[in-house]
Write a protein that binds this DNA or RNA. Sequence first.
RNA 1: GGAGGGUUGGCUGAGUGGUUGAAAGCGGCGGUCUUGAAAACCGUUAGCGGGCUCCGCCCGCUCGGGGGUUCGAAUCCCUCACCCUCCGCCA
Length: 425
Amino acid sequence: MLDLRHIRDHPEQVRRAIRAKQLPEALAALDALLLADEGRRLARADLEAKQAVRNAASKEIGARKRRGEGAEELMAQMTEVSSEVKRLEDRDASLAEQIDALLLEIPNLPHESVPYGESEHDNVVVAEHGERATADGALPHWDLPLARRLFDLEAGVTLTGAGFPVARGAGARLVRGLAAYFLDRLARAGYEEIIPPLVVNAASATATGQLPDKEGQMYGVTGGFYLIPTSEVPVTNLHRGAILDEDALPLRYCAFTPCFRREAGSHGKEVRGLNRVHQFDKVEMVQFTRPEESYGALESMTETAEALLVELGLPFRRLLMCTGDMGFTQAKKYDLEVWSPGQERWLEVSSISNMEAFQTNRLGTRARSGGAAGRGRTGPVHTLNGSALAFPRTIAALLETGQRPDGTVELPQVLHEFVGSNVLA
RNA sequence: GGAGGGUUGGCUGAGUGGUUGAAAGCGGCGGUCUUGAAAACCGUUAGCGGGCUCCGCCCGCUCGGGGGUUCGAAUCCCUCACCCUCCGCCA
């Protein structure tokens, strides 16, 4: 969420941002929020004055009692003041609750470098890398017998339902190899590896922005928990409610986990095969940075993910997302899309975003030199996250790119040691 | 699953209804002393919100979370979470 004081001081900027993000329904929330905030501050002046009276009188009563004097009259007067305080406190609490709820409805502000746009058609291709193989009869992965065997969607239907592929044999080995390869590369780039819980509570899901509005995209489990839609959720929540040591920033984390997404109502060609599934593996990067360093970190995270695609020999392009296609929590976001020769289209394999302080405001995460025991005021912290990379579409591209007439698939050199062979067969 | 104990400021740890937002020690910061450092000594040292005559002052909230009793709660009651010990169970 945005800082309430910032909203209060720059309501027009927030209004423009909401429009740019194509989220007009948030305009009403903003108006209601400004009203409630004003009302609460007025009410608080009342409340605090009454509290001050009560506190002073309580001290006086204490002093008199210690001197052995009576204080019945004062105590009688305070009965009334106290019930008035209670009444005002209740009103304040309900206003606060209202404000908190409205605050969650206000999206993040787009960074000034983000182009205005209404939909995905307005995203900007900022770079393209690698030679796209010309369509020489390359098959989409769902038509490759080998791919169907290594990533068995039929078996998944039996076990669970559509969209839960079963990786087997060399396919399972490929997943394990990719994970090891990605994690090794990120370790070298300074990312600490995390194995987080795959189930989180509502507070965690709220802090990173999945709740309250995107509950339908997650799988809930008994106990009020949710299966993680991305390891961004548990990893970012690692520092919920904490004061970080500013001198230790940036903190860089990576995690290899399955991700669970309902993706309700998606059907058709775009979601065939491995293009969109309900459970998939992903290696994620998360950073906590100083505010002035977060945009540098966004570039370097993006370059880290791109380097993986270069090494895998997969042609890709980088898109700068426009205001309208960016999402609720992001200030700036790049997507990396890999070329799928069998489908002759681009597939999104990574999304790298700067959330600025939007998540840390919800998390209650601050930073200060010396950490919690340090001196001086606490300052804001920015968070970023990005995939490096999402597995199913990366695998789809690898299978389609490496396919050979004999039905086997050639692997890029960089994977040979991790997978233990040069070809999938 | 059963029984008991606990959760206080960056840390250790006092504190069972009244100037306690919280003793003391450690750590941190500033200073005195010193060629420098250490030691010693003096001072200082929470977060959040609001207000103002805004380089500082004032008010309020916060002693695991929430609720209650009371003129007044870190202190009493209820509830939830977490931690520890013992027993059981599982591996």
